Amino acid sequence: MPLRRSAIVALSTVAAMAALAPGWAQGQPAPAWPTKTIRIMVGSPPGGPSDITTRLFAEQLQQRTGQPVVVENRPGAGNNLAAQVVAQSEADGHTLVLSPDTVVTTNPLVYRNMPFDPRKDLVNVSILAGFTQLLVCNPKVQARSVSELIALAKARPMTYASGGPAVPGHLATEMLLQRTGARMQHIPYKGPAPATLAVLSGEVDCGFLATPTVMQHVKAGKLNALAVSSAQPSPLAPDVPTLPKALNQPDLDITFKLVLQARRGTPPAVIAALEKHAAEIMQRPDIRARLQASDLTPVGSTSAQAEATVREDSARWEPVVKQLGLTME
């Protein structure tokens, strides 16, 4: 299973200690970087966890480097379109992407004809934050709990929305269905925002979607929240049960990470500069507060920590994806 929220918090603590270390990694001098505008690609529309985190990070990075930092949203193909831009860019640290870890952990297993190899073409610079998903349904769906939803899904055809194939919401729902033996038809959209609109309109019954994207609609009574995907309650929805508790399955803890990535081959000094900026930015009290207000857990890991964590999660997800038979062209 993906890294738990408690493990993310522990990694954040290690990152905070690393941020206090003086100088650049391995005593390297500060690199002549950046020398021009930095582009950070995001594989989802505005409003989701990736976009929220990227814009906060970009704002701070621009202040720290003195160079413009531009955020470009390029949704589609499970965040692959945004990552592909970086995979095919110059390896100079001026084109970056903030992706859910699924781009590296599961997309290579799901997408048969990817025009790049995220595991070979991208370097994981830093885990900026961790996040979970909130299971919501249209009020017309006669389910006020996960058990009621599962019973409905076993009794009649139902649908669920996600931000695209193999994205966190898709994986979280499929894991739920696998554990319970229920069935629901997957309806993918280009990002969490349009998926949320589909559930709001009743076009789709339910969905595991980003908490900051759907919480305003839950509070307004336009969506019913059934469970949060992690083992720890959501700060934004403390009264919503966790999925492990709702199903009495303590090991069912589904947490994801947001990873800053560069083109593989980017000079080590530039990677060191980026990871130092990431660690220090993610430890700022104001940034931490703003991320936590959006149900995101700030981290700011080193590149070595990010690489190790992504490798570990890739190994955990591989048998799950193969068992589910998730494939896309």
Rank of each mutant, 00 (worst) to 15 (best):
M1N: 00
L3H: 00
R4L: 00
R5Q: 04
S6Q: 07
T13M: 00
A16Y: 01
A21H: 06
P22E: 05
P29V: 12
T35I: 09
R39C: 03
I40A: 06
M41H: 13
P49N: 15
D51R: 08
R55M: 06
L56K: 08
F57S: 05
E59R: 10
Q60N: 13
Q62V: 08
Q62R: 13
V70I: 12
V70R: 15
V70Q: 15
R74P: 00
G76V: 11
N79A: 13
N80A: 14
E90F: 11
G93S: 12
G93W: 02
G93V: 09
H94T: 14
T95P: 03
V104F: 15
N107V: 13
P108D: 15
R112P: 10
V123S: 11
V123Y: 07
N124C: 04
V125I: 14
S126P: 07
I127D: 06
L128A: 06
L128F: 05
G130D: 10
L135A: 03
K140F: 05
V141A: 01
V141D: 04
A143S: 09
L152P: 01
A153I: 01
A166V: 10
V167C: 06
G169M: 04
E174P: 00
M175T: 13
M184P: 01
H186L: 05
K190W: 00
P192N: 09
A193I: 11
A195C: 03
V199P: 03
V199F: 06
S201P: 00
S201W: 00
G202N: 02
F208D: 10
L209W: 04
P212T: 03
P212Y: 04
P212C: 02
K219A: 07
G221E: 04
N224R: 11
A227Y: 06
V228P: 01
S230K: 01
D239T: 12
V240W: 02
T242Q: 09
P244D: 04
K245Y: 10
N248R: 12
D253P: 07
D253R: 15
I254Q: 14
K257I: 12
K257D: 14
L258G: 11
L258Y: 07
V259N: 07
R264K: 13
R264Q: 15
R264S: 15
R264T: 14
P267G: 09
A269Q: 12
V270P: 03
A272M: 02
A273K: 05
A279N: 08
I281K: 08
R284Y: 09
P285S: 10
D286L: 04
A293I: 03
S294W: 02
D295F: 04
T302Y: 02
A304W: 02
Q305W: 01
E307D: 14
S314C: 07
S314T: 14
R316G: 00
P319N: 10
V320A: 11
V321H: 05
G325V: 11
G325C: 11
M328Q: 14
E329Y: 03
